[in-house]
Amino acid sequence: MERSETSDLRAVLFDRDGTLVVDVPYNGDPDLVQPMPGAKDVLDGLRAAGIATGVISNQSGIARGLITPGDVASVNAKVEELLGPFDVWEICPHAEQDGCACRKPAPGMVLNACRKLGISASQAALIGDIGADVGAAEAAGAVGVLVPTPVTRAEEVAGARLVAADLASAVGLLQAAP
């Protein structure tokens, strides 16, 4: 959905792994959490501007038995310790084959986050590093911004409407959107 005014943006949601923090596959160890460059400054700027922040994260390692919900909670607590508090967290514990409505690129987590924040999805954006992040945003009616990393596939970059080099540029795109 296109925004008519930038003032309509009320929340920026983020993928966790590869977007806010360095991706450590199936990380259950808070000591391995490392913020992505510039993440804290971007989040502090959004918070200072009165824009809600949230995290939308697939955590299939839970369904696969590789990590526990407690492990994920410990890692998320470390993320908040390093990057500041988030207004909403949405975690999908399912595996791809479970066919749930929450696992990105399904819109469930984005819609739930917006509901908890008391906003419509058109007032939110989701920034992530893979096509599933952008897909979840668009399926929910939010704006998706792709910030590619070395694991992002070329077709995901080609298919994204908004692509940014880093988190600061991604937020800049949102603020410049019509």
Rank of each mutant, 00 (worst) to 15 (best):
V22P: 09
V163E: 08
A176N: 02
A48K: 14
G141K: 06
A124Q: 11
Q97R: 13
A136I: 09
A11G: 05
S60I: 09
M109V: 04
I91N: 04
I51V: 14
A139Y: 08
C114K: 02
K40I: 15
A158G: 08
R16M: 14
V72W: 04
V145H: 13
V157G: 15
A136Q: 09
S4T: 15
A73M: 11
S57C: 03
V110D: 04
Y26I: 07
D166V: 14
R161S: 07
P105D: 08
H94G: 05
R115C: 13
S7F: 02
G141E: 02
R161M: 13
R10A: 00
A170G: 12
E156R: 03
Q175D: 09
G99Q: 10
T149W: 04
G159I: 10
N58R: 01
G50F: 02
L167Q: 00
G131A: 02
E138P: 12
V24W: 07
N112K: 13
K40V: 11
I67T: 13
L173Q: 08
A77N: 08
L117M: 07
M109T: 02
S120T: 08
V33I: 05
P93L: 07
L83K: 02
L146P: 03
R103N: 06
M36K: 01
K104Y: 09
I62W: 02
A106N: 15
V147L: 04
I62C: 14
P35R: 03
D129V: 13
G45C: 13
T152Y: 06
A177M: 07
A170Y: 04
S120E: 14
I91R: 00
V21G: 06
D29C: 12
V79Q: 06
G144Q: 03
L66V: 01
Q123H: 06
G70R: 14
G50H: 07
V42W: 03
R161K: 14
G108I: 08
P105H: 00
G135N: 02
V134C: 00
G45K: 01
G172R: 05
T149Q: 15
Q175L: 10
A11H: 03
R3G: 02
V33H: 05
G159Q: 00
K116F: 00
N58T: 13
G128P: 03
P107K: 05
R47Q: 09
H94F: 06
G141F: 11
Y26C: 09
Q123N: 13
A137H: 10
T19E: 01
L126A: 06
A124G: 04
G159S: 15
A158T: 01
K78V: 01
D44S: 03
Q97T: 13
L66S: 12
T6W: 11
R103T: 02
D71C: 15
V21H: 01
P85R: 14
E5M: 10
V24L: 12
A95K: 09
R10W: 05
Q123D: 01
R115K: 15
Q175G: 10
R161H: 07
A154Y: 03
G28R: 12
L111T: 13
L83Q: 10
E155V: 11
G141N: 06
A11V: 09
S57G: 05
D129P: 15
